[in-house]
Amino acid sequence: MFNKIDEPIEVICAFLKNKSLPLYFRWGNRRYKIDKVNLVHSVRRGRDKLYFYSVSNKSNYFKLCFDTEKNCWTLNESYSE
């Protein structure tokens, strides 16, 4: 089931040679481990560039957003069965 969230989160991210991979994030009081980054896409809003990471672990899918202008992360949506 899909849930629209749009809440700020804290993220631990690895910056590799030419890509970045979110590894963990904290939402509320829980820490979530990211097992896989399935797809990354970006959108421009004016001069701002937003990166969307579609990620998953064993039981959940999450869509995370990194706003390069505001330098902050948000959790946009989740899906679990």
Partner: peptide, 10 residues
């Protein structure tokens, strides 16, 4: 397919 790529639960 892109949606299924993004979300493996689909």
């Amino acid at each position: 397919s892109v949606e299924q790529q993004a979300n493996p639960f689909l």
